[in-house]
Computed example of a mutant assay.
Amino acid sequence: MEQKTVNLYTRQNDKTLYQLERNGRIINERIYVELHFGDIAPLFMESYDWFTREAAKKVAKPEDVKAPIWCSISPDNCLKPIPDTVVYVLEVPQDQIIYFDDVKWDYVLNRIYLPKDDEDAAAYKRHLKEIGVENGFEFFEGRYKGMFPEEVERIRASWKRVFEIDNWTIFNVCGNIWEIKKEWVKRIVRPGESVD
C-alpha cells in the first residue's frame, strides 16, 4: 500500500540550500530559533522547548534535531520568499507531520491559559478573580512569578490543546516536521517566483 503524502510549504533561509545539498536533509537547530527572535528569544524559548517535547510524543524526533520546522498547509497562506530566503514546496509522508492550531499557539507563546471553549474561558476568568489575580499574563514572569505554582502547572496542561484542531482552515492549521529530506523537496521557490 502506498503511503499517503501531503503538500507543505515552508520559507527558510537560503543558506539551508547548502545543508540540503551537503547532508541530504535540513534540520532546525535551537540556535536558529533564538537568532530568529533576537533580543526577545528568552521570552519565547520556554514555549518552543515545550512544543518540541510535546510534538516528539506525537511523531518521533530524530536524535540530532533540536526544534521543529514550521510549515504551511497551503501555498495561499505560506510566507512568500524574500531576499536571502527560499520556499520549499514539499511532499511529506502524512505520518511525519505534527498538525497544530496556530491561533492556539499564541496562547502557548504568551504563556497563558488556553481554554477549551468560551465557557471554559469565562470560568477561568472567574477563577483568576477568586484567587485575586488581575490577569493571567504574569505567572511565568512578573508580579505573580513563583507565587502560584499550581497555576503554572494548570496553564502548561492547557497548552496541549494546541494539538486539538477545532476549525480546519489554511489560516489556523500548521503542519510541523522534524526535517526536510531531499526526496521530499518538489520545488524550490526563490524571491520573485510564485509559490503556487
Rank of each mutant, 00 (worst) to 15 (best):
P62D: 15
K129T: 05
F137K: 06
I180A: 10
I98P: 06
D39W: 09
L79E: 08
K4R: 11
G24N: 12
I177N: 04
C78G: 05
I188H: 10
K4H: 01
I98D: 11
V103M: 11
A157Q: 13
V133P: 02
Q94V: 11
E54Q: 14
D102P: 02
M1S: 09
Y9I: 13
N135A: 15
P68W: 13
V195G: 12
D95V: 07
F100G: 01
K186E: 15
I31Q: 12
K181W: 03
L17I: 05
R11K: 15
F37H: 05
N176Y: 12
K182H: 15
I170A: 10
G192W: 01
G192A: 01
D102Y: 07
D117N: 09
D106N: 15
P81R: 02
N7A: 07
L17W: 06
M45F: 03
E179L: 11
D166A: 06
D101F: 00
R22T: 14
V185P: 11
T5R: 12
E134F: 12
R111P: 00
P68D: 13
F163V: 00
F44D: 03
V108P: 06
I69F: 14
E54D: 13
R156K: 12
Y113M: 09
V108A: 10
V86T: 02
S74L: 01
R143E: 14
K15F: 14
V162L: 10
D95P: 00
L35H: 07
R190Q: 03
T85A: 09
K181S: 08
R30V: 00
R156W: 03
Y18R: 06
N13D: 12
N7Q: 12
W159Q: 09
D106M: 14
N135S: 15
V133Q: 04
T169N: 03
F37M: 01
I112F: 00
A41R: 04
E164P: 01
N28V: 07
E164G: 00
K66G: 12
D95Q: 11
T52S: 14
P75S: 15
Y113R: 04
T10C: 12
E29T: 09
Q94A: 15
N13S: 13
N135F: 13
P115S: 06
G146T: 09
E150W: 13
W105A: 15
P93A: 07
E150D: 11
E91D: 11
I155Y: 05
R190H: 08
K4C: 01
F137L: 04
I31F: 10
W159L: 08
F148L: 08
